[in-house]
Design a protein around this nucleic acid. Structure first.
Lengths: 202, 202, 202, 202
DNA sequence: CATGAATGAGTTTTCATTCAT
DNA sequence: GATGAATGAAAACTCATTCAT
């Protein structure tokens, strides 16, 4: 039992506090005291639960990634039996990814922060690389299951993820409202599905 | 003429120094003295030429954007007469954007830094929004010139820019080598061109 | 009996732990948690057994001094009947002092630490003063028993102790190996014994 | 010109301030702000002139050692022609060493602090080792000049330095007044001179 | 007796900014 | 224009001590 009940609670408080902080200020300008205040606990405790500010960040990145991976997996588990054909499944997955991830502005901001941190910090880069690799792989698996021509699947998977990240970035920077962004996304989504159904589906 | 020759030189030295700095450390961890040292000038001078650290950053962002805008415009001016048909032009433009912008790893890093700064700083966000808007608009103009069905052009333009940004991000995070990324890019580029030629070109 | 068996054990564990700690870091940089970890007990307990960090130190100094006093006394008790003449006894005592105290590098380090602590802390200074006084007195008693000219005995005793401390310091700082230091010590030891036998022995 | 006039002044102020601080508190309990306050300058400046607290200390140790080396050398230069015979010279040197170094209680305290710091810090140990080596060497040179039997000179030199350090330590710990300590020192000094004149002088 | 969560004062260090020279 | 000394606020981190369980 390395972590007691109270430890779990505190660690979760700190993670949630950091989310709130990162929506206001970049990590480098967020002080340990800021996080502690947001969590409603003494700043000394942050060093009791994590060995450094970087350690908080590394744990936080894992926390966020795991959180969304879990959400996706739970959704997949609940939906899988429902799909009648590849097109339905693809459309549902893209819808889910869009509504729960790409269009979540808070999440997008936090990921843009992660990306910047990754550029300058190899440890963070490694974590992010793993997350994106897994995401691309998940897409690949989904596509391969319904694919007769496998050669282009890896490129298509990576491209979809890149496009998704690009959309989320552009929607943040341009401050487009959700309707416009959804329209933009849908155009490409439909295009992609049609292309995929025509050329690749078995 | 408020700026003498020496002033122009100094300001340019500072901008170039900041580029070198940003490839090593994020802006928030880059000190005025770091920039001054990289520029080979006294740190006190940075406050003579710019009124604050933020002011340096705002000028720098404009400097970078202008720099690449100029490069693109010069290239366009030099190429325009050569194109025989829309397809050639589209392919050339996408090639240029890819080779000079999307695949320039240093530039990509600096833009990821800008994006993060923009999230938390409205002034920076405004500058970046303007840059991306103009970029999308440029693409729109290029497409519209050869287009019979204009309705989807705005979406396609924004999508192309988003995709381009997504690719550059993914290539940085995944540390993919240039060949892999180019392959990925080309698949979509070709797809896009074919789609565009079939449905939209007049 | 205020101290139960377990209490004695714990207190001894703490003292031994501090010895190990002081060979790595100065007392001021040794934390309560360091000592607790070295002792294999909970850091909260240190405040149960001792009222403060300083209290631990004061007890430790007494512990170390008593320890070595006991060793010397036991040795003396075991040896006394053996000596045939003053010269034998003197030589044996100096040998013992050298091999068990002066040349014990760990002990020397710990005493250098004590000396520094004593300079700035009157309570510690008092304890150390008492220890050195008693040591000098012991030497005095040994010398007086065999002395016809008592006047210079106090000076000689203090001088022997000072010399012994000086040797141990120099051997630590110069990192001389044991052989060199023993040679240095022996030269003076022999000189001293000859001088003492010639002028002072009754 | 790496150091301007003001730099020299400030650096000297800081060194002098540290002397005052070390007479009150050990180095580890002396904060950067304490030293700055004692020097009458802003604490930020200490990091302008020295790159860390340890750097201040290392410079300080060199400063103190150089200071006393200079004093000794100047004295030697002024005295050398006066000595008629080895005995006069030896006595004068030992007198000087005693009155200006061994019996200087402030200096003794500071050296006890250095010794403790040296035990735990290799860089400091190296500096102190060099200082003691040079001191022993100086004594050796003085003795060798007047010596017919050189074999024991190294031991005697090291022994004299060790004894001197031992005396200064004991006088601090026992809080003996100067008269008593001088008496103690003189007994050995006389003994040493007589021994040296009889056996070793050429 | 034992544990470990909690507190808060204190430490070194960094740095944008100012300004006298 | 140019230099670099000076300021002071703020940062991350440490730790003796307390105390509820």
């Amino acid at each position: 039992m390395t972590h007691s009940k109270i430890q779990e609670t505190r660690r979760r408080q700190i993670m949630d506090a950091l989310t709130r902080c990162l929506l206001k200020k970049p990590f480098n300008q967020t002080s340990i005291k800021d996080i502690a205040a947001a969590a409603g606990i003494n700043h000394g405790m942050l060093h009791y639960y994590y060995k450094s500010k970087e350690d908080i960040l590394l744990n936080y990145i894992e926390f966020v990634i795991d959180h969304y991976k879990t959400i996706f997996e739970e959704w997949m588990a609940s939906k899988t039996p429902d799909f009648q054909n590849p097109e339905d499944m693809l459309r549902a997955c893209l819808d889910f990814a869009y509504h729960r991830i790409t269009s979540d502005r808070d999440l997008s901001k936090i990921f843009i922060e992660f990306q910047e941190l990754a550029i300058y910090n190899p440890k963070i880069k490694k974590k992010l690389r793993k997350a994106y690799s897994e995401w691309i792989e998940t897409v690949q698996i989904l596509l391969t299951e319904n694919c007769k021509e496998e050669a282009s699947v890896p490129h298509i998977s990576a491209g979809l993820v890149a496009f998704s990240e690009g959309i989320s970035l552009i929607s943040i920077i341009l401050d487009k409202n959700d309707v416009e962004i959804e329209g933009l996304f849908k155009v490409f989504q439909e295009q992609f599905i049609q292309y995929f159904m025509k050329n690749i589906t078995r």
